[in-house]
Simulated scan of single mutants.
Amino acid sequence: MKKLDDIVITGYGIKAPGVLNKPSFLNVLNNGICTQTILKSVNEDQNNIVAGIIDDDFLELNGRNYKRYPRSVRLAISAAMDALEMSGLKDYDPKRVAVIIGTSAGAVLEIEQYSAAYVNYRSFPIHGVSIVDTHTLSTSVAEALGLCGPAFTLTTGCTASIDAVLMGKLLLENGAVDACIVGGSDAPLGSWTINGFKKLRALSTETSIDQAGVPFSSEHQGFVLAEGAGVIVLERRESAQAREQRIYGKIERVMSRNEGQKLLGSDETGRHMLEIFQEVVGNTKPSYVNSQALGMALNDRIERFILMETFSSDVPITSIKGMIGHTFGAAGAMQIISSLLSMEYGFIPPTIKTKGDGFEDIPIVYETRHQAVESVCITTHGSSGNNACLLLTHA
């Protein structure tokens, strides 16, 4: 049997709070900068919250107006354009390039905006149907990039962009396509999402930026909601080398499973996540774990559990959520891109805000650690029992 070719990353693009390109993301990660801000409530009877907000509106991209497109779609298109430029995919047959983008909240902002108009034919927007069609996300990215290969939109919540990588890797390995544009995008900063996670007591209600969304801390509870998009270009190593394209990293292994839990439930023992984590790392001892830890008690306890059961205190762990917040379906892609920068420039980004109260037994990276980084394990969890892990190695 012919050995499967390596699946490698040849480009990426990111739009996150305080981050619009590679240099700005590198600066945030290397210096441990919190880019979160205060989101003012639209309701007088509710408090403001800490959130990760992107200032740009992305209404015009490459000279074209995208005002009728949902914000999550505009974010994805902008990030995908950057990824395509970095990867130099212009010479590929557009029918042989797939687009796979994941999301959690989809176009929830626009659905809120037009919800009062749905009963009135005259005021109902002409693009109303496309707003509620989540697949607009991937088809719009494909159209904007001039691609007409397979297009898939994954709505698997917080694991969506890791799931997109998994699907892209499979398509490349079986020869169905020559390249994949994969990632995630979410713009969830609306009343529906905010009120929903407040009801679940999952969202931080702290009004101090330093005290909101604190990873690995028993003294704090709740995550910081953020918007953003992360897009990655996957290719077979042989193809990338043939066109002398720079390779930034290799997808060594990636796995995703669902625990089969009830609505909004998850396995509190962490055993399901442990199995996936251990299968993905295999015999590799990664340079560090890029954790989803975001300030939710159960989530962060499971992160500690899988680390200690697998490596004890031998492998450092960090989380970038204290810097940019939790971007739902885009989170995994952002963790991948941060790990690519970590490997390229030789550092482990810090976990900011926290003192590690209640997590003193694990080797949390509190200050930027400059060292060679050969491999990173990335973890993500999703609502109703989704778990996904990815092992990224040096090119």
Rank of each mutant, 00 (worst) to 15 (best):
V28C: 10
V28P: 03
K262L: 11
E206N: 14
S319Q: 02
R369C: 15
L20N: 14
G146Q: 05
C389M: 13
I364Q: 06
Q278H: 02
Q36L: 15
M296Y: 05
E110R: 04
E60Q: 15
A395Q: 12
I324E: 00
G184S: 03
G249A: 11
D93Y: 06
S161A: 09
S72G: 04
V119N: 14
G149E: 05
E173N: 14
P125A: 08
G106H: 06
V280M: 07
S338M: 11
A293K: 01
S339A: 09
Y366R: 14
L147T: 01
N48F: 11
R237S: 12
G230Y: 03
V376G: 00
G382H: 04
P23T: 12
G382K: 06
P125E: 05
Q221F: 07
H394F: 13
V19F: 05
G356E: 07
P363I: 10
F359D: 01
I209G: 00
L20T: 13
V8R: 08
S239D: 13
F216Q: 03
Q241D: 12
I362M: 15
Y345V: 04
M81T: 07
T35R: 13
V99S: 02
S41T: 03
T393N: 08
M323G: 01
L391S: 01
V50H: 04
N290T: 03
D82M: 10
A229G: 07
L264Y: 15
I181H: 07
T35Q: 10
E252N: 12
K198L: 12
T205G: 04
G270A: 08
L392F: 09
D57R: 12
G230R: 08
V373I: 15
K15H: 06
I14C: 10
E227T: 09
A297C: 01
P286S: 04
T159R: 07
I336R: 09
N48G: 04
Q261W: 02
L154H: 04
L234S: 06
E268L: 15
A187Q: 00
E60H: 12
R96W: 02
D300K: 05
D45A: 15
L26D: 06
I302E: 01
S191Y: 10
Y92T: 00
L59V: 11
I14F: 04
L391W: 03
C389W: 06
H394P: 00
T193W: 10
G358V: 09
E235D: 07
A107G: 08
T354H: 03
R304G: 04
G358W: 08
F25N: 03
A16G: 03
A187E: 00
S287P: 02
S24V: 02
